[in-house]
Design a protein around this nucleic acid. Structure first.
Lengths: 352, 352
DNA sequence: ACGCTTCGTCGAAACGCTTCGACGATCACT
DNA sequence: AGTGATCGTCGAAGCGTTTCGACGAAGCGT
């Protein structure tokens, strides 16, 4: 393995000159540059990443931190990861995948102090997330996917849940639905302060209110069985319901199964919209799901790009961006068979 | 940020002594060790990863190389990744995620020469994979998830497709099915030398032969539409078919939809077995799919552990391991409504 | 022709650790 | 008491870069 010394000797220049050619930190004449480049090519030289990292105090390694609890990642999170990896790679950076749960605060501190990571993207952020504090104290440049409750002085990319819910509800209301249930994540998840669950809940309430409709939200465990149970609960509370809006990607298949089991057809009897869903998953169902398509790999990419901008130091402004999910109409939504409105245009008086 | 010098000064020992305490490379008396440990604690010392890497020529970073082509990872591949990340993390290693396609051979060479990666796990291996050669030439310790055609001198973990197929077929035959179609990946994928597709094809042929049955394989594009088309083709070729075995996780949902569309019930009219599938995905379908459950995160973990054993250098033997998928019976398989056998035990004469 | 910048290059000092050879002290046997 | 081992520690030489200060050579205006 050739070193910079070898290159320098072959090109008959000093080591520092080779370094300047490589980094462009100082002007080098074309003639010298060519000599050096030729020597590098001949020796098949590749700079040693560790040495470079030590000397420059920049590892060119970024971290992607995710709690890797229970069942692996969903399709949406996976897209974040691949998007981030691709973006980092394209920028000449490496991306290390670190499973750091909320409990491993000490691990995290250690990781941050090792000076191996130039910066970090944090996934699956809670509304109150101590990991953010730890990282900030360690002075590690940080971008969130998701966001905490207080985002002052923080950079983040997150889904625009407010708008996503509003659009989904508008789509259903536009079709003529008046009784819409929102199937959220589990009660435990809500209680833990999981941002997406809380934000969509609030957005749903206000979106429904905007149409003069009564909001009904049911939490569901992250499983097919949870979806079934939720649907049963929904029908118990609102027998007239004609539309389901579901945040819970896992539960939604249970919902579909339960619907079929009750002899109800999708979309003729009940319309279903899946929130924050990848197209691949939406296509799995029969009929294919009308869904709010998550920005997927773009989120990961944008987070990395924001992080890199931080590192370049030029702007130390925060990057705060919300990405809406795009409504993609497939086969699971339609005009309800028997509209529940008494008269079109008139606000309904179903306020129990 | 405290350095080793600071620790040494505070503990009134030499720098090398501190290093020995940290690495255990040489014996250190209990008294000295305690002093040093106390000093480290007081200064909140964390060794600098880059410096350590440079001096020891071991970065403690492992690479996970995957082509990140088209549509992100499936649930099975995602499980490999998370399993690998967890195992690396548990062993005190970092895992970098590198998207390196089959075309980026130069990128790969560069990556390998940077001396940043102590070793590498290569995913999505083709039967003839140049990346393996590049890595071997660069002298990077290597473990495959999947395997090439010639595995001499290579370490790998792979799924035992032979046995998985045999078990799946045995399950169906045991239920009384005689006409079974195997829905594989696309013709293009087969032509590209994708190991799993080829190996399951051969295994299917021989498993069916073992039962005296005629094998029928249909390739399918990786999409719901591809699954539908494949099922249509299957019925055209074998109208009497009562069971589908599917390798193609994406196509299988199309198959189910098409079955329902034709007024056929699963499992009463047609049984369906999904190969190399994660439980989460199997649960998504209605009815939940009987499936050969992929070893998931275990594969990633085993690959990393084998790689680490290589690095420890003790045994430079290859690690070659095949993991079978476990048959998990759910709701998509049953005794066929009308068995296609003319007489039990007698080999059928359906060889057209 | 004079000083003054700017350009292009060099040598040497970090960066923070590991590791090697050396060396006194201790210990177990003769 | 003498002789090797073994143990515990130290100092110094790297590891392969980056980066800083210095310095001769040009180029400029006057």
């Amino acid at each position: 393995m050739a070193t910079m010394h070898d290159v320098a000797r072959l090109a008959r220049v000093s080591v520092s000159t080779v370094s300047y050619v490589l980094t462009g930190t100082r002007p080098i004449s074309q003639a010298t540059r060519d000599k050096v480049l030729a020597a590098m090519a001949e020796l098949d030289y590749q700079p040693n990443a560790m040495a470079r990292g030590l000397a420059s105090r920049r590892s060119r390694i970024l971290g992607l931190l995710m709690p890797m609890d229970e069942r692996g990642l969903g399709a949406t999170e996976t897209a974040f990861v691949t998007g981030a990896a691709a973006a980092a790679s394209a920028a000449g950076y490496h991306l290390v995948l670190s499973p750091v749960g909320g409990g491993d605060l000490d691990d995290l501190r250690r990781l941050a102090s090792q000076r191996m990571l130039d910066g970090v993207v944090l996934m699956e952020v809670q509304l109150a997330d101590e990991r953010v504090t730890v990282l900030q104290e360690a002075g590690v440049p940080l971008v969130l996917i998701g966001r905490t409750g207080d985002t002052t002085a923080l950079s983040y990319v997150d889904i625009d849940f407010e708008q996503t819910v509003r659009e989904a509800v508008a789509h259903l209301v536009g079709l003529g639905h008046r009784s819409i249930v929102y199937v959220n994540h589990s009660a435990a998840t809500l209680a833990s302060g999981y941002g997406p669950a809380l934000r969509t809940r609030d957005a749903f309430v206000s979106a429904m209110a905007g149409h003069g409709l009564e909001p009904l939200m049911i939490p569901a465990e992250d499983s097919a069985a949870g979806g079934r149970a939720a649907l049963a609960a929904a029908f118990a509370r609102a027998p007239e319901l004609t539309a389901v809006l579901a945040m819970n990607e896992t539960a939604i298949f249970g919902i579909l199964g339960e619907l079929t089991g009750r002899g109800l057809s999708v979309p003729d009897d009940v319309s279903v919209v899946s929130m924050v869903t990848s197209p691949q998953v939406a296509e799995l169902a029969t009929p294919a799901l009308t869904a709010m398509t998550s920005p997927g790999s773009a989120m990961g990419r944008i987070a990395i790009e924001a992080l890199l901008r931080h590192l370049d130091g030029t702007g130390d402004e925060r990057h705060q961006q919300l990405l809406p999910c795009a409504l993609e109409i497939r086969g699971s939504t339609a005009v309800p068979r028997r509209p529940t409105t008494d008269a079109p245009g008139r606000p309904p008086d179903d306020g129990g």
